[in-house]
Amino acid sequence: VGEWSCVRCTFLNPAGQRQCSICEAPR
């Protein structure tokens, strides 16, 4: 899977990211 949706702000982050780029919530 290439990306994941943040549970807090729904931003689509790259699969390699451990936390959201926008709101910094953990994956």
Rank of each mutant, 00 (worst) to 15 (best):
Arg18Leu: 08
Ile22Cys: 14
Val1Trp: 06
Glu3Thr: 06
Asn13Val: 11
Cys23Arg: 02
Ala25Thr: 07
Ser21Phe: 06
Val1Glu: 11
Pro14Lys: 05
Cys23Gly: 02
Ser5Pro: 06
Arg18Met: 15
Ala15Glu: 07
Ser5Thr: 10
Ala25Val: 07
Arg18Ile: 10
Val1Cys: 08
Cys20Thr: 01
Ser5Lys: 12
Gln19Gly: 04
Ser5Tyr: 06
Gly16Leu: 07
Trp4Phe: 14
Gln19Arg: 02
Arg27Val: 12
Gly16Asp: 11
Trp4Tyr: 15
Arg18Val: 08
Ser5Gln: 13
Trp4Asp: 15
Gln19His: 01
Thr10Ile: 08
Gly16Trp: 02
Cys6Val: 01
Trp4Met: 15
Gly16Ile: 09
Glu24Lys: 09
Ala15Met: 15
Val1Asn: 05
Ala15Leu: 12
Glu3Val: 05
Cys6Tyr: 07
Trp4Val: 09
Glu3Tyr: 13
Glu24Arg: 09
Ile22Val: 10
Leu12Asp: 08
Glu3Arg: 01
Gln19Thr: 07
Val1Leu: 07
Arg27Ser: 14
Val1Arg: 05
Ile22Asn: 14
Arg18His: 12
Gln19Met: 14
Gly2Pro: 07
Leu12Ile: 03
Arg18Cys: 05
Leu12Phe: 06
Gly16Arg: 02
Gly16Ala: 08
Glu24Asp: 12
Ser21His: 11
Ala15Asp: 11
Ser5Met: 06
Glu3Asp: 09
Arg27Gly: 12
Cys6Met: 02
Gly16Met: 14
Ile22Leu: 05
Cys20Val: 00
Gly16Glu: 10
Ser21Glu: 04
Gly2Asn: 13
Glu3Lys: 02
Arg27Leu: 10
Ala15Cys: 05
Glu3Met: 04
Gly16Cys: 03
Ala25Asp: 13
Gly16Thr: 09
Ala25Tyr: 07
Ser21Gly: 04
Glu24Asn: 05
Trp4Pro: 15
Ile22Trp: 09
Arg18Gln: 12
Ala15Lys: 09
Val1Thr: 03
Arg27Gln: 14
Pro26Arg: 11
Gly2Val: 12
Ala15Tyr: 08
Phe11Ala: 15
Glu3Gly: 02
Gly2Ser: 07
Pro14His: 06
